[in-house]
């Protein structure tokens, strides 16, 4: 393939990866931004969302779009409920102490993984995209659904931005994020905000999973990658900055895509990962983070 089309393909792939990263990271950016706890089970919420998408769509016959849309509603609701229950039963009792939360969410990770393994099984299963015609370019074909993921990602980021900056819920969340104690003094029910944010973060992860699972597969061990990548995106972007999360996702996605043109795959991964790590080394507060921590 000529260099031009190759670069086009790599850029497209990079953009899709960026969209996937931004989608996945949204929920974590919320939870981590507001609550400042490392939720190791966040990736499992993503996985649960994908597995439930498979389950819901397998119940519906006929046009795959119906099952998909149903999954887009049902899966986040169930995942949100699971998150809410674990927040009330465990995290709240731990007072969101960062260290105890890590252990508890690792425990949660084991439980969710085992339940999915037992009831869903160890196989990777595909979920049919609501539509998926192949776009034929002169040099190669491309999945239309992948482009739809980019659009969905943009929409969801805008929606989140709107909620955070233009609604009362967003104001309350930002206040809690800024300083929980002062927010409490001003009558913000911090305890309930935490519960809501935790559930909302998990639901966003599930939405992302439903949108992404047609281009990946539902598998009980799929949660680790999104977890790590989300953390990377959120921190590189700068804590609490939605804009930063988006820019970081694009930076990581595009660099990963374009570097892969020039090197053998594993070497490209090594270079891309080092590059992103060095960005953080030389800009410790993240791209759009405040100067002081």
């Amino acid at each position: 393939m000529a260099f031009g089309p190759y670069l086009l393909l790599a850029t497209l792939e990079g953009l899709v990866m960026a969209a996937v990263l931004a989608l996945t990271a949204l929920g974590l950016s919320l939870v981590f931004g507001v609550m400042r706890v490392v939720n190791v089970a966040h990736g499992e919420f993503f996985m649960l969302g994908a597995v439930l998408a498979w389950w819901v769509s397998s119940l519906v016959s006929g046009n795959p779009a119906i099952g998909f849309l149903l999954a887009l509603i049902v899966s986040p609701l169930i995942v949100g409920a699971v998150a809410l229950v674990s927040e009330r039963l465990v995290l709240r009792r731990l007072d969101y102490k960062p260290e105890a939360t890590i252990v508890a969410t690792i425990g949660l990770l084991y439980i969710i993984q085992q339940l999915v393994l037992t009831f869903y099984g160890p196989e990777a299963r595909p979920v049919v995209a609501p539509f998926d015609f192949r776009i034929r370019l002169p040099w190669f074909g491309y999945s239309s659904y992948k482009l739809a993921v980019i659009a969905a990602s943009i929409l969801l980021v805008l929606a989140t931005w709107f909620v955070l900056t233009r609604t009362k819920i967003g104001l309350v969340m930002r206040a809690t994020q800024y300083d929980g104690e002062i927010a409490q003094a001003f009558g913000v029910p911090v305890d309930r905000v935490y519960a809501g944010v935790f559930a909302l973060g998990a639901m966003l992860a599930a939405v992302a999973a439903v949108l992404i699972v047609p281009i990946q597969q539902a598998h009980y061990l799929m949660g680790l990658d999104p977890l790590l990548l989300s953390f990377i995106v959120v921190i590189i972007g700068g804590l609490g900055s939605l804009r930063g999360t988006v820019v970081a996702a694009v930076l990581i996605g595009l660099s990963d895509g374009i570097i892969s043109v020039f090197f053998s795959p594993t070497l490209a991964k090594i270079i891309a990962t080092s590059f992103v790590a060095l960005v953080l080394v030389f800009r410790p507060q993240g791209l759009f983070g405040a100067e002081t921590r």
Binding site: F32, V38, L228, F231, I232, I235, I236, L239, T266, L267, K269, I270, T273, S274, V276, A277, L278, L280, V281, F282, P284, Q285, G286, R293
Partner: peptide
């Protein structure tokens, strides 16, 4: 390199360098 960062950034930088190390063992 990593000590230029603190807190969560330190966590992520070390995570990524370790990933690089892992990939090198495969490379």
């Amino acid at each position: 390199l990593a000590l230029r960062t603190t807190g969560v950034a330190f966590m992520i930088v070390t995570l990524m360098f370790a990933q690089v190390f892992y990939l090198i063992t495969l490379f």
